[in-house]
Amino acid sequence: MPKLNPPEAKTNSPGSNTLIQIESLSLHYGESKALKNISLTLGEKVVTAFIGPSGCGKSTLLRCLNRMNDLIDNVRIEGSCKIGGHDIYSPDVDVIELRKRVGMVFQKSNPFPKSIYENVAYGLHLHGSKSKPEIAAVVEQSLRSAALWDEVKDRLHASALGLSGGQQQRLCIARAIAIKPEIILMDEPASALDPLATARIEELILELKKDFTIVIVTHNMQQAARISDQTAFFYIGELIEFDSTAKIFTNPAKKQTEDYVTGRFG
């Protein structure tokens, strides 16, 4: 996939190479408009946080990036969303191929009721004609990257459902990175976890950004502050402000952003 050079040096993009380019994207559920004319440029290998009150469209936008919204009836999308310069909503796009490149981790950890090993190998079985030892190697590597290997290496063939909530979520991350995506979307990945498990996920995200571009939806302001390089604030379907995380949390340009990050509404 060709990498686009940044079209112009945009001040709101710390990433050196543009990877995701959303232009005047609107999304309708039937009659109601869930996203209004969003334009956003995300660089490669940066962590971007989407914040905003519930129902502001941040999860919807996240799901636009791997076309998970396709699963819902009556969704209509206008504008364009380019990944690596290619509009993912153009008719020639293979959604399967897109989802291989854009992985996703969900709010509620959702390991398959299979073994730990089979969970990570699932995507490989789907796509690869890899041999058994190759798959085993990728499984190990993915579990290591997800900082889970040491905890599960002795019980790879035990059920994934026997893991703790935090471990399950890291397993889901391992499962996502096993098929080597470029982008990982995370939809409130730590919202159901205790502070310690949350801290581990956050550390993991900071490690993963060396290799992946990460977009994360979070309700936790400090989490966004801790792990993201840039932050986008949404309100009722609109992108209110997008800037470096330090700027958003110490000196936001818009009053709405300030009110939200300081907890005055939302």
């Binding site: 400090q222 502050a225 801790r226 995380t245 330090a246 949390f249 110490t250």
Partner: peptide
């Protein structure tokens, strides 16, 4: 220090 303070 300010940026660190935002991280709770």
């Amino acid at each position: 220090a300010i940026v660190l303070l935002t991280k709770a």
